[in-house]
């Protein structure tokens, strides 16, 4: 199986049924992508495929066709600094997934409204409750 991740091509050997999240974390050492539920309910494992946020824990690695972008590929995105400044991180376990969802949002809508942010980010659960700060970070991501 060949995967293009953050622009690099990887040759991976994994059984059919392996999730993209497991391949990223266990085979490629890309542990920035977190697994918090492993069943599609929380958003911690969010990555982009061709710019579209999906849940890597329920994506079969073998069915991936497009280019995968993980948090490792977004480390220099201005959103990272926006999250830091806004204090949009407490324990941080949900945060890489939040950044991936947010990056897709601002790529589609560079100046999203509060409503749009709430609609686009509702699939990323944060138990620490950083939501108000996430909203702030996204509203001011280019400052």
């Amino acid at each position: 199986m060949k995967l293009v991740i953050n622009g690099d091509e990887h040759e991976v050997d994994a059984p059919v049924g392996a999730s993209l999240a497991a391949v990223l974390r266990e085979r490629l050492g890309l542990t920035g992508t977190k697994i918090a539920c492993n069943e599609g309910h929380c958003g911690a494992c969010t990555v982009m495929i061709d710019g579209v946020p999906v849940l890597s824990c329920i994506t079969l690695a073998h069915s991936v066709e497009g280019e995968v972008t993980t948090i490792e590929g977004l480390r220099d995105h201005p959103l990272v600094d926006a999250f830091v400044r806004a204090d949009a991180v407490q324990c941080g376990f949900c945060t890489p997934g939040q950044v991936v969802s947010a990056a897709a949002l601002v790529a589609a809508r560079p100046t999203p409204t509060e409503e749009e942010i709430r609609h686009a980010m509702a699939g990323n659960i944060c138990r620490c409750g950083t939501y108000p700060k996430i909203e702030e970070a996204i509203l001011h991501w280019r400052d």
Partner: peptide, 12 residues
């Protein structure tokens, strides 16, 4: 569709 599931799930 808009009110179903979560954004990532709707993408998939």
């Amino acid at each position: 569709c808009r009110l179903a599931a979560s954004p990532q799930l709707r993408n998939m």
